[in-house]
Design a protein around this nucleic acid. Structure first.
Lengths: 354, 354
DNA sequence: ATTAGCACTCAGGAATGATGAGTGCTAAAC
DNA sequence: GTTTAGCACTCATCATTCCTGAGTGCTAAT
């Protein structure tokens, strides 16, 4: 059954007032708030029906009304107006995104922090490494006679490095040899193709080199593994305490440790976002994770390139400013997609003067 | 005036009981707890004197006693027994330290998390980049015809990389040229020696290369700057809520946002640790920062090599298990120092089998 | 269909009182 | 002189009670 126009107006007023004040909304207040010229008594009748229909709830008999998850859902789907970001806000976001160094994981992490700061809710960001990755290239750089740095680049253009210190001398030509060896034997292999046998063979070809091949390849494997299993970053968990629904320390603590510690689950929660649309809103019980049954999650996905995706999201009480959060989040997600997809240069212009 | 042996015993018992239970300690309980065979009345007299002397405090007339900051100080300086870590604990720490990839900042961050988890207090870790750094070497790696990765290594052997995408084609020889150019012109220069003029000159020598020199050098400058100004990592802030002194959400929130947001101050607080000994304990009002006036901080410093130091620390209520925390913290700090100072290999043995 | 009016409900805060842990002091005991 | 038993006193904490006011649902009039 479709709700009457008036009921919608009232529902919307309830949601928006409650989002702002966190106080149950009464009929009298609504008579003024909602753009409806009727008395509080009429509103009461309407409220009673909306409650009947499951869109509103009453904390106790003599209190005002509060939106139910179903009410929020309707609000989000039909009643909510798309929020436009102010020019200043977009500017701020853009700057923050471009300022940061472009190391994949740093950017993601930073984006999470930014979103949290922007919305005043805890935020998380993660990359889903759905794909099977391979190493595209090895480089070994001599640091001094007893140490070198291995730089590996994956076919997703992520670069990682590690410093190795040796108990013995090493020369530039030796390192060259190792490099070519690594590049011929291990490039283009997926994680499970990097077998111990393969390593033994290469080790043999390298001759007396202290098992360096294995060391570097192990490092490469760690890198692949880390990337394929993705990463989760959370930021701004302390914002939980900003909201009156978490004045109860016990509750706050539960949610907080779920967000900071339970990384595997934090990941699981974001899966819904990877299928389907850009932004997704999960309200209270719509969440799979028990710990989130009375919180809402707003998610936006972004492209990393190479068909890989990531998710950035915000967690908060069901009484969340969905319009604002969704707008900001999807703006940031878009920004991320662009950042990963576009060329660096406005050429010729030095980026920064300092 | 030196305290009598009995007073010391009593003070110690008060501190340790209060650390455990967070409840004011009464004379009766102490009569049993402290290894002193006197009645509660005698204890009461002693307590009164200890209070007089400023080592204890009384929350209100009919409550037991609680250690004052001065009391904790005495406890830490004279009464506390050095805690030995169990074999299991040391093993756990060692493993965790060695497991992680050896990228400087990752290790530090991880160490912070570890400490927090180990102690159940929020922890932070930071590196102090006191020194003026220079770039030791540039490498440019071609990714595809329109992008390359710049790898810069500082003289402190930190390696950072960044992907550059170009609006135009680029060839391997061009890149080679750029690389040598970069390495001859900019290696060994400190941040303020990397002047715009220098960049212009090099740019000119490079010919038509879209201002690539500037781009890469700007990146290098960012890296130097970031390293010199150090970095702060905080972890486990949610542990604040574990402790009854922060049942008051307002308090918890203040401390938490101080720890997570106020990075400059978090850095300032750690300066004391860089001078002097290995471990340092700051109790309540001994802290400079206002926000920490009723918390304690335990700090340990570690060597990164090249004369550079870092600090790792733990924040908690003054009622903190100083003995345990100090032991764990300094063990981790030592581990870090070793990690940075020692060669990688037990050679020949592949580290991991997976 | 709307509204005024009224009785009713119930959370939240203030006021009150009982409880008990713990103290300080005094006077006796060692 | 030190220790201890005893006792009056203090004060946070908790439970109880009472009051107030916001907000409701229902009825009857418009």
């Amino acid at each position: 059954m479709e709700l009457s126009e008036r009921k919608k107006k009232i529902l919307r007023a309830v949601v928006e007032s409650y989002i702002q004040t966190a106080e149950p909304v009464g009929s009298k207040a609504l008579a003024e708030l909602a753009g409806v010229k009727v008395s509080s008594a009429t509103i009461r009748n309407e409220l009673a029906e909306l409650t009947e229909l499951g869109y509103l709830e009453q904390p106790h008999t003599s209190a005002g009304r509060v939106p139910s998850p179903q009410g929020y859902r309707l609000y989000v789907n039909e009643l909510m107006e798309e929020q436009r970001l102010s020019l200043e806000e977009t500017k701020q976001i853009n700057e923050a995104l471009h300022l940061k160094m472009r190391e994949l994981d740093k950017v993601i992490d930073q984006a999470g922090r930014m979103v949290s700061q922007l919305t005043n809710y805890p935020a998380f960001a993660l990359t889903e490494g759905a794909r099977r990755l391979t190493i595209r290239r090895f480089d070994l750089i001599l640091v001094d006679e007893a140490s070198f740095i291995a730089v590996v680049m994956t076919d997703s253009s992520v670069v990682k490095n590690k410093l190795f210190r040796l108990p013995a001398q090493l020369s530039e030509p030796q390192l060259q040899l190792l490099t070519t060896l690594l590049n011929t034997a291990f490039v283009g292999k997926t994680l499970d193709q990097l077998t111990p046998e393969l390593m033994r063979v290469a080790e043999h070809a390298a001759g007396s080199s202290y098992g360096l091949i294995s060391l570097v390849v192990s490092f490469a494997m760690e890198v692949l593994d880390a990337l394929e299993s993705g990463a989760v970053y959370t930021a701004g968990t302390s914002h939980i305490l900003d909201h009156p629904e978490y004045q109860d320390v016990g509750k706050a603590q539960k949610l907080m440790s779920y967000l900071t510690e339970d990384r595997s689950l934090a990941q699981a929660l974001a899966l819904p976002a990877l299928e389907g649309d850009d932004t997704k809103i999960l309200i209270g019980p719509e969440n799979v994770a028990d710990e989130l049954k009375d919180t809402s999650v707003v998610l936006a996905s972004y492209d990393i390139g190479d068909g890989m995706k990531g998710v950035i999201g915000v967690v908060g009480p069901t009484r969340m400013d969905y319009a604002k959060v969704a707008a900001k989040l999807s703006y940031v997600a878009d920004g991320l997609s662009k950042l990963f997809g576009q060329p660096e240069l406005p050429p010729g212009t030095p980026e920064k003067e300092e």
